[in-house]
Computed example of a mutant assay.
Amino acid sequence: MKKISFYASNFLVVMLLVASTIVTGQTKLPNIVILATGGTIAGAGASATGSAYTSGQVKIDAMIDAVPNIRQLANLKGEQVANVGSQDMSVKVWLDVANRINTLLASKDVDGIVITHGTDTQEETAYFLNLVVKSDKPVVLTGSMRPSTALSAEGPLNLYNAVAVAASPKSKGYGVMVAMNDEIHSAHSVKKMMTTPVQTFQSPEEGMIGSVVFGEVDFFHKPHGLHTTSSEFSIDGVKSLPRVDILYACADSSPDLVDLMVKAGAKGIVIAGVGDGNMNAGTLEAVKKATKAGVAVVRASRVPLGAVLIKGEIVDADYGTVSADELNPQKARILLMLSLLKDRSREDLQRVFIEY
Rank of each mutant, 00 (worst) to 15 (best):
Y248H: 11
V217F: 01
L247P: 07
K92R: 15
I64R: 04
T142W: 02
R100C: 07
T21L: 08
S231G: 05
S230D: 15
A281W: 03
G43N: 12
S51L: 07
D325T: 11
Q199K: 05
P68A: 05
S323H: 08
L129S: 13
A179Q: 04
L327D: 07
G175Y: 02
R71F: 08
I354G: 00
M1N: 13
N75R: 14
S9G: 11
A324Q: 13
A266T: 06
E123I: 00
T200A: 03
G215L: 02
E326K: 12
D318G: 04
Q26P: 00
G210L: 02
L95A: 10
K3W: 14
V139K: 02
K288P: 03
V132S: 10
Y174N: 03
D61Y: 07
M63L: 04
T121R: 13
T321M: 08
A126H: 09
N181P: 00
S51I: 07
Q199D: 15
G118F: 02
V140H: 08
L12N: 11
L336K: 01
T40S: 06
E183A: 02
V23M: 11
V198T: 15
V262H: 05
L257Q: 13
V114L: 01
G85Y: 07
A106C: 05
L141G: 05
H224L: 04
V270Q: 08
V14G: 08
V14E: 13
G38Y: 02
I4H: 15
L341Y: 00
V114C: 03
L257W: 11
R344N: 13
T228K: 04
D276P: 05
T49E: 15
A8T: 15
Y160L: 00
D343S: 06
A296D: 10
V133M: 06
Y356N: 14
M337P: 00
A249N: 13
S231V: 01
V13F: 10
R346K: 10
I184A: 00
I271L: 02
F11G: 15
A126C: 03
G282Y: 10
A307C: 08
E216Q: 14
A44V: 14
L129C: 12
K289D: 13
S135Y: 14
S230V: 03
V176M: 01
V114D: 10
I101H: 09
L129G: 13
V133H: 14
S254H: 14
N75H: 15
K3F: 09
K288N: 12
G275S: 05
T228Y: 07
V176R: 01
I70A: 10
I334R: 08
G277M: 03
T142Q: 09
I246Y: 13
M208Q: 04
V258C: 03
Q80Y: 10
K239G: 09
T49W: 06
P156H: 12
V297W: 04
K108C: 02
G215V: 01
